[in-house]
Simulated scan of single mutants.
Amino acid sequence: MLLGLRSAIYPVADLAAASSWYESVLGTAPYFSEPFYVGFAVGGFELGLLPDGTPGTGGPQPLWGVADAQHTIERLLALGATPLDPVTEVGGGIKVGAVTDPFGNRLGVIENPHFNAADVR
């Protein structure tokens, strides 16, 4: 049985460059860093980087929770991401958007006033 999101893993060709970029984005160093995998702790979940993979914007599309979707997308763009999906209100005050990270992966965000961290298992 699925208990909930634990990790979102992004394939990258240059692990060192991706690790450095995500460290800038997240404002924290990875908690796990080996030549075969880098993991960042993000609000009780994990953003992982997997070397020698094929980046892409298709497939599963995790959305990382943020307080302000527009501000976050603007910051990601300033850090070198490229626009993918503009911030859009999808109903109920929920806003989503996405960029392509410098390594070719989709990085999606969600501003959801209904999210209750107490529900996370």
Rank of each mutant, 00 (worst) to 15 (best):
70 Q>F: 03
51 P>A: 01
118 A>L: 10
121 R>A: 14
105 N>L: 08
9 I>V: 10
60 P>F: 01
86 P>N: 03
31 Y>G: 13
60 P>L: 03
74 E>T: 02
37 Y>C: 09
75 R>D: 04
7 S>L: 15
60 P>H: 00
10 Y>S: 00
82 T>E: 05
56 G>C: 01
81 A>G: 04
101 D>F: 08
109 V>G: 02
28 T>V: 08
40 F>L: 10
52 D>I: 04
58 G>C: 13
93 G>Y: 15
36 F>Q: 13
43 G>V: 01
57 T>Y: 12
105 N>F: 06
105 N>E: 09
57 T>I: 15
6 R>D: 15
22 Y>C: 10
79 L>P: 08
87 V>I: 00
4 G>P: 12
88 T>R: 02
110 I>L: 10
46 E>L: 14
21 W>P: 03
93 G>F: 15
86 P>M: 03
68 D>V: 07
8 A>R: 07
7 S>A: 15
120 V>H: 13
74 E>V: 03
33 S>N: 11
26 L>Q: 00
23 E>C: 11
58 G>V: 12
75 R>T: 10
8 A>K: 05
112 N>S: 12
36 F>D: 12
83 P>V: 12
92 G>M: 11
38 V>A: 07
67 A>L: 12
16 A>D: 13
111 E>L: 04
63 L>Y: 10
118 A>Q: 06
116 N>Y: 12
83 P>N: 12
43 G>S: 00
7 S>G: 14
90 V>K: 10
9 I>Q: 05
110 I>G: 06
68 D>S: 09
